[in-house]
């Protein structure tokens, strides 16, 4: 049983947001419903300024805060490491959004993120919250895949609809290998500098495991104990996601 994890090499990440754009397309997201996003921040004072950035998917925590607090057990962790949301059970209470330390969960029903609201432009005739002409064919409400109904929380699924079809016993899913490309998460497929990797963290021979070892992979907000399945490689450069309070300049 693979424990799927992601490795993001901050020495290579160019902050271009290709991952963000690909995720929105692959998962038919609303504008701003950034399941994957790149967080940019600025530190320092002119003329010694630093802009830093890091991509932020859902951490698919081993010890997910969201799962602990969900009153209906709508959000759950699978045995392959996915943290998913069952939209048939979710009541949209948003307790999970408050609990998540990483801010990766979305509730799109209060305020439209774009004006005019794309959901009104591309109205749905049924329970789907909207029906855009470019919507992807896959749908699986029990796993939070596809266009959601109204009144539920949504989040990154590690492209469950792709990864779950991967052949068994494959240690890494790479976009460069035509045999595994269609099973690789969209953000990994998209990343132009190949800063993102996806593979089995439980396999010490997998590329992701090797990279974490070779390049000192760290996890975001590790002190909170969520045990993310997303590791960042900072190598000799790249932004170390900081726990310091960022002073607004």
């Amino acid at each position: 049983m693979p424990k799927w994890g992601m490795v993001i090499d901050l020495e290579k990440c160019t902050g271009c947001q290709a991952c963000t754009a690909a995720c929105a397309m692959e998962n038919s997201r609303l504008p701003g419903e950034s399941w994957q996003d790149v967080i940019l921040f600025t530190e320092g004072e002119y003329p010694s300024v630093q802009i830093k950035w890091f991509p932020r998917p859902c951490m698919q925590c081993e010890n997910p805060s969201c799962v602990h607090v969900c009153p209906t057990r709508a959000t759950y962790k699978t045995d392959q490491g996915f943290v998913l949301i069952d939209w048939d059970r979710c009541i949209g209470c948003k307790y999970c959004m408050i609990a998540c330390p990483y801010g990766v969960r979305f509730y799109t029903d209060e305020k439209p993120l774009a004006a005019p609201d794309p959901r009104k432009v591309f109205k749905s005739e049924d329970e789907h919250s909207w029906n855009p002409p470019w919507k992807a064919p896959q749908e699986d409400w029990k796993r939070g895949v596809g266009i959601q109904p109204r009144g539920v929380v949504s989040k990154c699924t590690f492209c469950y609809h792709r990864v779950s079809k991967a052949p068994k016993d494959v240690p890494d899913l790479s976009e460069h290998d035509p045999k595994t490309r269609e099973y690789t998460p969209a953000c990994v497929v998209a990343c132009p500098p190949t800063a993102r990797y996806f593979g089995d963290l439980d396999n010490p021979d997998s590329e992701v495991s090797m990279m974490i070892a070779n390049k000192n992979g760290i996890r975001l907000l590790d002190q909170l104990g969520n045990k993310p399945q997303v590791y960042y490689l900072t190598g000799s450069g790249g932004a170390v996601p900081s726990n310091r309070a960022i002073k607004k300049t």
Partner: peptide
């Protein structure tokens, strides 16, 4: 096999 973020805006 790659695109910049703009490539995904086609649809």
């Amino acid at each position: 096999g790659k695109l910049c973020p703009k490539g995904y805006l086609g649809a």
